[in-house]
Write a protein that binds this DNA or RNA. Structure first.
Lengths: 364, 364
DNA sequence: ACGAGCCACTAAAGCGCTAAAGCAGCTGGG
DNA sequence: CCCAGCTGCTTTAGCGCTTTAGTGGCTCGT
């Protein structure tokens, strides 16, 4: 639609090539329609005070002139900032390779962008820096809500964020985070299912290449493994902590497989580490699943793309993102309105990387 | 909450559980120090108009009271929004698995967060939606600059963004994008190097599993392959377009390897597809690099984590992010101050997935 | 027939900050 | 000794929007 010469433009020069100085404001719309700015504001915000006829004319004009509210002006009046914040503080570099956050963000977006809420993303080195970002964002009123990921045992962020008064959701915690509600998955049940499955196949020597042990979810998994081992009478299971990096995943695998009583099954806390582990096994000539079964505690393309495809605990991370974003928006609108939410428990997707341990025959 | 009959207003009720109303403002600091708000503003912004002594007292008070400027208020006055925007419009789902963007973002952050510039991230389905986001952000004055990724042949975004008047940098284009400067890598040279390397090993049937052919960088690679084939007299090379997904990467590989004259080397346009291709080859019993050499046109943990590790064109994506962010900030501060920037050319990192084609002996 | 009440709107104040203009008190050149 | 010209502030205005308080004109109930 070519810009018709009349009405629409600001009293600018010849061609609209220059909009430079004059931002389009509701005053312009008001002038165009012939009402006061406040009438325009009423109309645009769908509140009473203008006749339907006028409202329609105003909305039309705004549309035609391609007007958008100046977010800062709105926010200044006390309106929400229209953004939520996410800070990632993994000891990075590895971060790029883990599909988890990317998928999560993608899921969140499907909710956020539908409501025109922006996502502020910041990647930092450590928790200290993370807190600084929170404080700044809160002070600057840049965000209406925060998503806190990877809760730790004595997490300083919980109290700090609560003190800032910014609504927040914790992802992956369970119980006792001050007043912040959490969206969590039942890692425990997932781990139990996995161990039961491996035990049923005949495995007794099961290793667990865990993530960062300060993370709550990692701890839950470690504890669950121990409990399962107790229940099932598996004497030879243990968890080895790592920093979630492919490097440590590979190194630990190499070490485990070199031992005299090497495990016959390894559960990895992330898909990346599982793939790295598979690489090491292949390189060492250990057949998978012939002599070693591999399970990943996180699922993504990675596990499907390698050969053999890796048995994994899968959950719909995209859906998780949706859930988290919805909870976040809800708590922003009405603080205290959200209780802890239990997300779907990861379910074991059996692929080609798991089988009976060596020495166990079909007939038992 | 029952409305208590008496003193309904301000004088906070029982518990100070309510800090709600009173945001900390420069007026508070002014009162504390005993000067006017503008004196405080001057002091905090390091501009003349206050004595050093007063300035110090003000800064101290601000620090002590833990004050932060209200970003909206600043922005209203015409100050920059303090944020840059990035919209990702890949036909997603796959997106999560590609380390490229995650690494890029991480690199950008190291520049942005040092300057306290926020990153607005949005993931959308298609270019149309992407344009909508740009228009909204521009209208709302939410961002000071934009990064446009994956430029296409006749990219509608270039003109649209230029018209919006928002400073922007294009990543991965080269030449002719209106007035928007670009940061680009020499895909052509990289492809030439790769083909030369493969040809030197003795390969003549080289396939190229390309990305989305509407992307400029994909086209450059396709053209480079054709040129290289011409120069080196390789009759049997060709590029197969895909959507960058692991699924298509795998499917195309399967198809290629089933042909009578199967290629002896395949170059993949992304690491994820390369890994998928390796998986297919393994599954089909085609030894790598014995009968098939594999090269990835993008490097990341993925290529190193699998076995055999994949020969790849590596570049420092983190550094690229740094470069991009710096260019973006520069162009925000001084529009027109940035010319096209050539990033480092990806260099071939030879790993285990490439070797002589079958039938070629050491002595030739 | 007159004030109460409503409607559709306008006028004005204010959000927190910056920027321009104003204004005391001092200095120093003529 | 007077005033231009500082210095170090304060006052005022305004960014674009929402919101509260009006304000005319109208209808209506008694």
């Amino acid at each position: 639609m070519p810009t018709s010469g009349s009405g629409v433009n600001k009293p600018g020069a010849a061609l609209g090539h220059e909009k430079a100085k004059g931002r389009l404001t509701i005053a312009d719309i008001a002038r165009e329609v012939g009402v006061s700015p406040s009438a325009v504001s009423f109309a645009l915000n769908g509140r009473p005070g203008v006749s339907e006829a006028t409202r329609a004319r105003i909305l039309q004009a705004a549309e035609r002139m391609n007007w958008h509210p100046h977010s800062a002006a709105r926010a200044l009046g006390g309106a929400p900032a229209g953004a939520v914040g996410l800070v990632l503080a993994r000891p990075t570099r590895t971060l790029g390779a883990e599909p988890f956050y990317a998928q999560l963000i993608y899921g969140m977006q499907s909710v956020l962008s539908a409501r025109s809420v922006a996502l502020l993303l910041q990647v930092v080195d450590d928790t200290e820096a993370e807190l600084t970002v929170y404080r700044r964002w809160a002070g600057e009123q840049r965000v209406d809500g925060l998503l806190i990921v990877d809760p730790q045992t004595k997490d300083p962020r919980i109290a700090a964020v609560a003190a800032l008064g910014v609504p927040a959701i914790v992802l992956g915690g369970h119980g006792k985070h001050g007043d912040l509600p959490t969206v969590w998955a039942d890692d425990r049940e997932a781990m139990l299912e996995t161990v039961r499955y491996l035990a049923a196949l005949g495995h007794t020597r099961i290793a667990h290449v865990a993530g960062t042990p300060t993370f709550q979810h990692t701890q839950r998994r470690i504890r669950a493994l121990k409990d399962a081992a107790g229940q099932l009478g598996l004497a030879d299971t243990h968890s080895v902590p790592t920093d979630f990096s492919d490097g440590e995943g590979a190194a630990v695998t190499r070490r485990l497989l070199s031992q005299p009583d090497a495990p016959t099954a390894i559960v990895y806390d992330s898909d990346l580490m599982a793939v790295a582990g598979l690489g090491v096994a292949t390189e060492m000539g250990v057949p998978v699943p012939g002599e070693l079964s591999i399970v990943s505690f996180d699922d993504s393309v990675l596990t499907r793309v390698v050969h053999p495809a890796i048995t994994a605990l899968s959950r719909d991370t995209h859906a998780l993102g949706v859930q988290v974003a919805e909870a976040l928006l809800r708590i922003v609108e009405e603080p205290g309105s959200v209780a802890d939410i239990k997300a779907a428990t990861p379910r074991l997707t059996v692929r080609e990387s798991t089988g009976k341990p060596p020495g166990v025959r079909a007939g038992r």
